[in-house]
């Protein structure tokens, strides 16, 4: 692999190392008791100091929804913006300020419903931002309607006879939108979350992290299968360069040579050689996409976590700034501006 530029390159470093306390704001955290957001906030506040960057050069931008209260609790710069638009606001900020590490916090409604357009375009452009999508598969702030990731048939206040909609698979969507970094973590898995967020920040370009987040009020237990004691049988931890196995190494992911489809197999039956080796850096997104499809549209029973895809492609904002450099800055900007105003065809009145 060629040497890649870090997503944090150009961001000033903290003069003295930061602690979790330094990135914890004065604001009282106001999520419901037991909300998965607490764990995600704690993991993020744990990761930030380890990145080594200056606190004042860190910006968290959110949209609307429970998750979007996040910036108030991080003592950095931050904006709690409007519904769905955080990726677009972050794009303007990232283009103009290469010295900032820009994080976007969003939810399944914010990113995939009202803000779907901005999400896919930020991803395809590969703007150097890190998008954390807290997916609780429900609308929380508006008190419990189905979301674009809710399973079909979901009974909610707005779907008393069951939701009719086919849900989005956020990772499939991101990969389809040409995302260059795609990962997943679970709110309660501090180590996994920390690893993924650290890698996401280090990736130059748009990093997309789906975080399975439990909503104890409106959709409690949505991820029970991938949490707790039985999670070994359902959580597939992806490690680059390693065979994709889980359940204590007894199960693995096999790729059909003809169709390219992935299936879960018993390792003992097929042998370790038949197990697919994870390659997050493969430029073709096919394998990452196939991995994302292991998680079905219904209740989550199987979920790969970790980094699905991490490929090095020029970041949009770097390219935009490079065009300014290519155009060449005038030695005397005032004189150059005056000359522009004069234009090509002038006449003089005496």
């Amino acid at each position: 692999m060629t040497e890649t530029r870090s997503g944090l390159a150009g961001v000033p470093l903290a003069v003295t190392p930061l602690t979790r306390k330094d990135v914890t704001s004065d604001a009282e955290v106001r999520w419901c008791p037991g909300c998965g957001d607490y764990a995600i906030l704690a993991a993020f506040q744990g990761v930030l100091p380890t990145l080594g960057i200056a606190r004042e050069n860190t910006v968290v931008i959110s949209g609307i929804g429970c998750a979007s209260r996040f910036p108030y609790y991080v003592d950095s710069y931050g904006m709690h913006s409007i519904h769905g638009r955080a990726p677009a606001i972050a794009t303007g900020l990232a283009m103009t300020r290469p010295d900032l590490a820009v994080f976007v916090v969003t939810g399944d409604g914010d990113a995939l419903s009202i803000g779907g357009n901005h999400l896919i375009h930020a991803l395809r452009r590969n703007v150097n931002i890190t998008i954390m999508l807290f997916n609780n598969r429900i609308y929380g702030l508006t008190k419990g309607q189905f979301s674009p990731t809710s399973e079909q048939g979901k009974v909610t206040k707005s779907s008393p006879m069951g939701s009719l909609e086919v849900p989005f698979n956020p990772l499939s969507l991101a990969i389809g939108a040409e995302a260059t970094f795609v990962a997943r973590a679970v709110d309660s898995d501090r180590a996994g979350l920390t690893e993924v967020l650290t890698a996401a920040a280090a990736h130059r370009g748009a990093s997309f992290v789906e975080i399975y987040q439990n909503c104890p009020i409106f959709n409690d237990g949505a991820y029970d299968a991938v949490k707790g004691r039985d999670s070994d049988d359902s959580l597939i931890r992806l490690v680059h360069g390693e065979p994709i196995v889980f359940a204590g190494g007894t199960k693995g992911v096999h790729r059909d040579q003809r169709t390219g489809e992935l299936s879960i197999v018993d390792v003992a039956t097929v042998g370790l050689d038949a197990i697919e080796v994870h390659d997050a850096h493969r430029s073709d997104p096919g394998l990452a996409f196939a991995l994302s499809r292991l998680t079905g549209p219904g209740v989550v029973r199987i979920a790969p976590v970790g980094i699905f895809r991490d490929v090095d492609t020029p970041a949009y904002d770097d390219l935009a700034r490079a065009q300014l450099e290519t155009a060449g800055r005038p030695e005397n900007p005032q004189a150059a501006m005056q000359s522009l105003l004069r234009g090509a065809e002038t006449w003089t009145v005496l």
Partner: peptide, 11 residues
């Protein structure tokens, strides 16, 4: 953003 010590949130 980038101004040390003046970190704050708006929205």
């Amino acid at each position: 953003p980038g101004t040390a010590g003046l970190e704050h949130r708006i929205g």
